[in-house]
């Protein structure tokens, strides 16, 4: 941890235009190693679009996205394909849950670990000793992740049949399975009851503290945002209108105006 202050994710002058709509307008933000940051803003502000630009679902119209997970030089990732960006250590969840819903809970997590294994088609058919061992290791590792996320009792359940809160947790488990250094959570407690929200708050802290994963989250639940995040970015109509620690954001007149309307 030589340069703890160097950002591990840096977005500069990012813009995303859909036809005539400027969904993101010249946004610059950064996240430091080990931080929990929140991105908030009214519906349609462009929060999810920023996630999509970071993770390669969209190619940004302008601007750059760079990562610097280690001590090496920063690396630009904008314009790369989502699977490549994931392999570089960025994992995400989705606002509208996107689980592999007809597969079991364990299988969902196993897919997250796809790139930690090698076996190709021929190995799969021959199923030699190395492949069998690899498969067993995969099962055990995935099981561990599920235990950490408190989903162990659902292992053989079809993902579609999980209670809503557990589905959101499974998305996080699956993202963690890809061994990220940065986790992007898109409204992780949307639709959860207060009890579940409280539990997820603990989980988010645990992920940062025990797994050393930096977290950027989009959330509407203000109690969660204020409790877990160290820094908050506020987005309105695609522009950043404020940035700072929770106490400052709470009393920022521009933020209050954006949320309450004119």
């Amino acid at each position: 941890m030589t340069n703890t202050n160097a950002p591990i994710l840096e977005i500069k002058n990012l813009s995303m235009v859909f036809g005539g709509l400027r969904a993101i307008d010249d946004v610059s933000l950064h996240i430091k190693k080990g931080e929990i940051c929140a991105l908030i803003g009214p519906n349609g502000a462009g929060k999810t679009t920023i996630f999509n630009c970071i993770t390669g679902v969209y190619k940004p119209t302008e601007g750059s996205v760079a990562i610097q997970p280690g001590d090496g030089p920063a690396e630009h990732i904008h314009g790369l394909k989502p699977n490549i960006i994931n392999r570089k250590g960025l994992a995400r969840t989705f606002q509208n849950i996107r689980l592999f819903s007809n597969m079991t809970v364990l299988e969902n997590v196993m897919i997250g670990r796809h790139n930690s294994l090698q076996a190709g088609i021929f190995k799969a058919i021959i199923r030699d000793r190395a492949t069998r061992e690899e498969e067993q290791r995969l099962i055990d590792e995935s099981h561990e992740i599920l235990k950490k996320m408190g989903l162990a009792m659902f292992i053989n359940e079809t993902a579609r049949n999980l209670p809503y809160g557990a589905q959101r947790r499974l998305e996080i488990a699956r993202a963690l399975a890809t061994d990220p250094f940065l986790l992007l959570l898109d409204e992780p407690v949307a639709g959860m009851n207060p009890h579940e929200t409280k539990e997820l708050e603990e989980t988010i802290n645990l992920i940062r503290d025990r797994e050393n994963v930096t977290i950027l989250l989009i959330e509407h639940d203000m109690s969660l945002v204020m409790n877990v995040s160290e820094r908050i970015y506020v987005l309105d109509y695609g522009r950043l209108i404020a940035e700072g620690p929770p106490v400052e954001i709470k009393s920022n007149p521009e933020v209050i105006k954006a949320y309450l309307g004119e």
Partner: peptide, 13 residues
Amino acid sequence: EDEIACEAMGIDL
């Protein structure tokens, strides 16, 4: 099941 999620898991479509 889901191409977007699949790609987000690092799988080359």
